Simulated assay, not measured.
Amino acid sequence: MTDIFTLDAELRADLGKGASRRLRHANKVPAILYGEGKEPVSLTLAHNKVFRAQQEEAFYSSVLTLNVDGKPVECLIKDMQRHPFKQVIMHLDFMRINASHALRTNVPVHVINEEDFLKAGATVSRHITEIAISCLPKNLPEFITVDIKDLEIGQTLHLSDVVLPKGVTSDDLAKGEDHDLAVVTVNAAKVQSDDSDTEEEETTEE
């Protein structure tokens, strides 16, 4: 765990829209921490620290540590509200986790070995960018690698074809075969139509 995934947070009692505006003007981010059967608590974090951390893809699929008034709490980021056009984070939702309890979250998909298809003029269509998983916190992967080297033109790789890390299961596959989502499809190269050339020739003849 890198330092950027350990954030200092302060408890806050001043709630409401006005209080949140004052926090943002002071370069702070209002947040809430909930889960594990405990009462939600309202927090404040330094905007610059959060902004730096959220630039890393792994921030969204890693176990984070919040130092809440000096006491470490392990959690996941569950929601982030951003300003519609400014580079400002408006609010954060964190969910507590327990090392002995399975968690559910989404992790990004990284597709590898697509270069040969692209060189041949084929296209690679990515149907999903994240996979919903369940696992213990210690088994949480930063991403799921999807290797398409053995696919053929026209074939689709589904969730059931993805090799998940040890201790990780797919939430969708647990619902049944009807939820075996398409992940990646390799499409044949498009052949340009000669219609335009034919029409040009006909026009010339006329």
Rank of each mutant, 00 (worst) to 15 (best):
Gln87Ala: 11
Leu92Arg: 08
Asp93Asn: 13
Phe94Trp: 03
Asp93Val: 04
Arg96Lys: 05
Ser100Pro: 02
Ala102Asn: 08
Ser100Arg: 15
Asn98Trp: 09
Asn106Asp: 12
Glu115Gly: 09
Ile112Leu: 05
Asn98Arg: 14
Asp93Arg: 10
Pro108Phe: 11
Val109Ile: 14
Met95Ser: 13
Glu115Pro: 07
Ile89Tyr: 06
Glu114Val: 02
Met90Thr: 12
Asn113Arg: 01
His101Asn: 12
Val111Ser: 02
Asp93Ile: 10
Gln87Met: 09
Val109Glu: 06
Arg104Trp: 05
Val107Phe: 03
Lys119Leu: 13
Leu92Phe: 06
Phe94His: 14
His91Val: 04
Met90Gln: 14
Glu114Phe: 03
Val88Glu: 15
Arg104Thr: 13
Arg96Tyr: 03
Ser100Met: 12
His101Ile: 11
Leu92His: 12
Ser100Ile: 14
Arg96Ala: 05
Arg96Gln: 03
Glu115Arg: 09
Met95Leu: 08
Glu114Asn: 03
Glu115Ser: 11
Gln87Thr: 07
Val88His: 08
Glu115Leu: 11
Ala99Cys: 01
Pro108Thr: 15
Val111Trp: 00
Met95Thr: 10
Val111Phe: 01
Ile112His: 00
Lys119Asp: 12
His101Gln: 15
Val107Lys: 03
Ile97Leu: 12
Ile89Met: 09
Val107Thr: 02
Leu118Ile: 15
Asp116Glu: 11
Met90Ala: 08
Met90Lys: 05
Arg96Pro: 03
Ala99Glu: 15
Ala99Gln: 12
Asn106His: 13
Glu115Met: 13
Ser100Leu: 14
Val111Arg: 00
Ile112Gln: 07
Met95Tyr: 08
Leu118Gln: 13
Glu114Trp: 00
Leu103Glu: 02
Asp93Glu: 14
Ile112Glu: 07
Met95Asn: 07
Ile112Gly: 08
Ala99Asp: 10
Val109Pro: 09
Gln87Ile: 02
His91Ile: 09
Met95Ala: 10
His101Thr: 13
Asp116Gly: 05
Val111Cys: 00
Lys119Ala: 07
Met90Gly: 01
Val109Asp: 10
Leu118Glu: 14
Val107Cys: 00
Pro108Tyr: 14
Leu118Ser: 10
Ile97His: 01
Pro108Cys: 05
Met90Ile: 08
Arg96Leu: 07
Glu115Thr: 13
Thr105Tyr: 08
